[in-house]
Computed example of a mutant assay.
Amino acid sequence: MMKKYIFLILLLILSNYGFGQEIPNKTEKFDAQIFEYLSQTIEKDSIYLETFLECSKPFSKWDIRPLKFEKVYAMDKVHSASEIPNFFWGAFSNYYKLSIEEAMRKPNVFLNTGSQKQDELTDYLKTNSKKFDKLSNLILKKSE
């Protein structure tokens, strides 16, 4: 009898763990809204491919990966949050008329170029740190 209760308690715990996890944004359609915004911005402002990559790779201003959630609901399915930028890149690589091979290679080439320029960019940041601090403070004041 005790084994039966232990089994039921374990089953309840496991079912809550597996099925009780809430997937964020299921009803918000954030993926479609962001995609639409980026599409309009790219076309309206004639954004170059390199600029798109600068703005959309990890932790850039258009990086849309959810930082607080491991799984998200996008394109009518549950996906790993880290997959989301890849879907967007796939769609926008079509806009830039890249072949599949070029589209797969381009982000890595872009990131490698950034790695090679790391010292130069670090020096630039150090040289202009007061300007960045001033800009950051202005942004913080404006958002209050």
Rank of each mutant, 00 (worst) to 15 (best):
I84Q: 03
G90Q: 14
A91I: 10
K134H: 09
F92Q: 05
G90H: 10
K4R: 12
T113C: 01
L98D: 02
M75E: 11
I13Y: 07
K117D: 14
N25P: 00
L111Q: 06
F88R: 09
N86H: 14
Y48R: 08
I23F: 08
F87C: 04
I6N: 03
L125D: 02
P58T: 04
G114M: 09
L53E: 04
K4I: 06
I13H: 01
P85C: 08
G90A: 09
Y95M: 02
F30A: 09
L98P: 03
K126S: 03
Y124N: 08
A81V: 05
D45P: 01
V78S: 07
T122C: 00
A32S: 10
E102F: 01
N25Y: 15
R65P: 09
T51I: 09
E43F: 02
L10I: 12
E83A: 13
I64E: 07
S143W: 05
D31A: 02
D31W: 08
S39E: 14
S82C: 03
I139F: 07
L11A: 15
N16M: 12
E22T: 14
D123V: 08
K131D: 12
E102K: 06
D123K: 13
F52P: 02
I47L: 15
K117L: 14
N16E: 11
N128Q: 02
E120N: 03
S143H: 05
E144T: 08
F110S: 04
P85K: 07
S56V: 01
S60W: 00
A103I: 03
K141Y: 03
L53Q: 01
M2H: 09
I139V: 10
M2E: 11
P66T: 04
K61I: 15
I84F: 03
H79K: 10
I47P: 01
D123M: 10
A81T: 12
Y48E: 09
K97W: 00
F19N: 12
I100N: 06
G20S: 12
T127F: 06
S56R: 01
A103G: 10
K126G: 00
I84H: 02
K126Y: 05
D63W: 14
D119T: 15
D63K: 00
E101C: 01
Y124S: 11
K126L: 10
F59P: 01
T113A: 12
M75L: 15
P66I: 03
E120D: 07
F7T: 13
L10N: 13
K130N: 13
E36T: 11
T41A: 13
I64F: 12
F52M: 04
P58A: 06
K117F: 11
K71C: 02
N112Y: 11
I64H: 05
T122M: 05
H79A: 02
L125H: 05
L10A: 13
Y48N: 05
I47M: 15
G20D: 10
K44L: 08
E28G: 04
Q118D: 03
Y17P: 00
N16S: 14
Y37P: 00
Q40M: 03
K142F: 11
K71W: 13
S115A: 15
A74W: 11
Y95A: 01
E144S: 11
S39N: 15
A74R: 14
L135W: 10
N137R: 11
I100T: 07
Y96H: 04
F69Q: 15
F59D: 14
S60G: 08
A103N: 02
L111A: 12
M2V: 11
